[in-house]
Amino acid sequence: MSDALQLILEDNDGTQLETSCSRFAVVWQGKELWVQAVGDQLLIGVDVAEGDTEYANLLLRPQATNLVSLQLEMEPALADEDDHVHGPDCNH
């Protein structure tokens, strides 16, 4: 299985451009949301820059049978959490 993503980009008039890449980012609310395929999973992450004072949380909510809503929520980063390693139990 290839980890390459096949993209279809569409502009406002409906013209489509097909391309492929290993990962891509969307700048949304001033943050880079990176998307990449790893095996049969689609990973989505938010880049954290040095000196950021907030953590980004991504909230995924079902909207319909084949539609979901993705929301970006910012949470203050506490100074004593600088060495925090994200894991399945950290709620970030």
Rank of each mutant, 00 (worst) to 15 (best):
M1E: 13
M1T: 09
S2F: 04
L5N: 00
L5G: 02
L5M: 05
Q6N: 11
L7E: 12
L7S: 07
I8V: 15
L9K: 15
E10C: 07
N12V: 08
N12Q: 10
N12R: 09
D13A: 11
D13K: 12
G14P: 00
T15K: 15
Q16S: 08
L17M: 13
L17G: 07
L17Q: 15
L17D: 09
T19D: 09
T19E: 01
S20G: 02
C21K: 00
C21F: 08
A25L: 11
V26S: 04
V26L: 15
V27S: 06
W28K: 12
W28D: 09
Q29Y: 02
G30E: 08
K31V: 08
K31W: 06
K31T: 06
K31N: 03
K31R: 13
L33G: 03
L33H: 06
V35W: 14
V35G: 05
Q36T: 11
Q36A: 12
Q36Y: 12
Q36R: 11
Q36N: 13
V38S: 15
V38C: 09
G39S: 04
L42C: 15
L42R: 14
G45K: 09
V46W: 04
D47L: 10
D47I: 02
V48C: 02
V48I: 02
V48A: 04
V48Y: 04
V48H: 02
A49D: 03
E50P: 05
E50I: 08
E50C: 01
G51N: 07
G51L: 02
D52M: 03
D52V: 02
T53D: 13
T53G: 15
T53S: 14
E54I: 04
Y55I: 05
Y55M: 03
A56K: 01
A56I: 00
A56N: 00
N57K: 06
L58D: 00
L58E: 00
L58H: 00
L59N: 08
L59T: 07
L59W: 03
L59E: 06
R61D: 08
R61T: 12
A64T: 05
T65F: 15
T65P: 08
N66C: 02
L67A: 14
V68H: 12
V68I: 13
S69R: 15
L70Y: 14
Q71L: 13
L72K: 00
L72G: 06
L72R: 01
L72N: 07
E73T: 12
E73M: 05
E73R: 11
E73Y: 11
E75V: 15
P76S: 14
P76K: 04
P76Y: 03
A77Q: 04
A77E: 01
A77S: 09
L78N: 14
L78H: 09
D80N: 09
D80T: 10
E81V: 08
D82Y: 12
D82Q: 14
H84Q: 11
H84R: 11
V85C: 03
G87M: 03
P88V: 09
P88N: 05
P88G: 13
D89G: 02
D89Q: 09
C90F: 06
N91T: 09
N91W: 11
H92F: 04
